[in-house]
Design a protein around this nucleic acid. Structure first.
Length: 303
DNA sequence: TCTCCTCGAGATCT
DNA sequence: CTCGAGGAGA
C-alpha cells in the first residue's frame, strides 16, 4: 500500500505552472513523527510575479538540538515569543489555500504539514505539488547531485543566506524560474518510466563491417533475467556491435536466449521465465535456437 | 503490443 | 520518494 500513511496527499506534477506558492519549512529534524516545525515560509506567485509572502517562527515544545541551531541559527529562545504550531499552521494553510505547492524535495515539507494538519484539524493537505528536485533530476541529467546548493551553483544563484525558511523559499523560487525558462517544453511523458522501457529497437550501432565468423553475427538474441556482470543495455549494445540482432521477446526467428539471474522475481514458477519456456517449446519443434548461460554468452563475445 | 506489478538502489530534506 | 529493470498476463 503506497499511500496508506497519507491517503489524501496530492499528486506530484511534472509541469511548470504560472500560479503557485513556493514553501519551505525549518524543523527540528527529519522525522515528522518525532520532530517539530520551527519556521514556516511561503511565497505566492501569480502570472510569474510575487504577490505575497509569509514567514513565521513557531513556538515548539521540545528543545532544539545544537546541530539545528547552528544550521538554521534558530534557538529555542527565538521561538518562545512565537505563536503555537496550531495557530501558525492555520494561517499558513489559509495562505497557501488551493494553490499548487512548489518546493525542493517538497515531500519533506508536505509530510510535516500533512501530519500536523491531521493532528490539529483532522484535515489533510490535498494540494498537488511540483518538486524542483524531481524536475531537476529529470532534466539536468548530467549533474551528479541535485541538492538545492548544487542547483544554485549550476545556475549562479546566491546561496549565502540559506537555511532559513524564507531565504530557502526565495532560492527555490529562483531555481524554479531557471528550470521553467530552460525546460518549459520538456517532454516529461516521454521519459517517465511508465511510458518508456528499453526496446531492442533503440539499440543501434555505427559499426559497418562485422566479423562474419563471430557466432553472434546475423543471429537474433533475447535476454531474460538480470545479468551479473553488466547491464542488459550494455550487453545489447555489444550484440549490436558484433552484428547480432536484438529482440525484446522470443519468437520463431530467435537463435539465442541468454539466461540471467531471475531469483529475485517472485512471479516466476519453477525457476523458468516465460521467455525460457517459450524457447524450450520452439527448440523441441526443431527451431535453430540455443538457450545459453550468461557465461557462455561472454565466451561468444570474447572472440 | 500494452498495462500493471514488484523489487532494489540512490538521493534529498532538517 | 522516485526511477529503472524486469516479468506476467491479456
Amino acid at each position: 500500500m503506497k499511500n496508506s500513511k497519507r491517503p489524501f496527499k496530492g499528486k506530484s506534477l511534472l509541469m511548470f505552472p504560472d500560479n503557485y506558492t513556493v514553501i519551505d519549512l525549518e524543523t527540528t529534524g527529519f522525522d515528522p513523527q518525532f520532530d517539530e516545525i520551527i519556521e514556516m515560509s511561503a511565497i505566492k506567485v501569480r502570472d510569474n510575479k510575487i504577490v505575497d509572502t509569509f514567514s513565521q517562527l513557531v513556538n515548539c515544545t521540545n528543545e532544539i538540538n545544537d546541530f539545528i541551531v547552528s544550521l538554521t541559527g534558530i534557538t529555542k529562545n527565538d521561538t518562545n515569543n512565537a505563536e503555537e504550531t496550531e495557530i501558525v499552521l492555520k494561517e499558513f494553510m489559509s495562505f497557501i489555500s488551493e494553490d499548487i505547492i512548489i518546493g525542493h524535495n517538497v515531500n519533506f515539507d508536505i509530510n510535516f504539514l500533512y501530519d500536523n494538519a491531521i493532528k490539529y484539524f483532522n484535515k489533510p493537505i490535498r494540494n498537488d505539488y511540483v518538486d524542483t528536485l524531481r524536475i531537476a533530476r529529470n532534466t539536468i541529467t548530467n549533474l551528479k547531485h541535485h541538492r538545492l546548493e548544487n542547483l544554485c551553483e549550476f545556475y549562479n544563484i546566491d546561496y549565502m543566506n540559506a537555511h532559513r525558511a524564507l531565504s530557502d523559499a526565495e532560492i527555490t523560487l529562483n531555481v524554479y524560474i531557471k528550470l521553467k525558462n530552460e525546460f518549459n517544453n520538456f517532454d516529461f511523458e516521454k521519459y517517465t518510466s511508465k511510458n518508456y522501457t528499453l526496446k531492442a529497437h533503440d539499440i543501434v550501432t555505427d559499426k559497418q563491417d562485422f566479423d562474419i565468423t563471430n557466432p553472434l553475427y546475423d543471429k537474433r538474441i533475447v535476454f531474460t533475467g538480470t545479468l551479473e556482470k553488466m547491464a542488459r543495455k550494455e550487453a545489447m549494445q555489444i550484440v549490436a556491435n558484433l552484428g547480432g540482432i536484438n529482440q525484446d521477446n522470443v519468437n520463431k526467428e530467435t537463435n539465442y536466449l541468454v539466461l540471467g539471474n531471475n531469483d529475485y522475481c517472485k512471479n516466476i514458477k519453477n525457476g523458468k521465465s516465460n521467455k525460457q519456456k517459450k524457447a524450450e517449446q520452439l527448440k523441441i519443434k526443431g527451431q535453430d535456437i540455443e538457450i545459453i548461460s550468461e557465461n557462455v554468452f561472454y565466451d561468444m563475445i570474447e572472440e
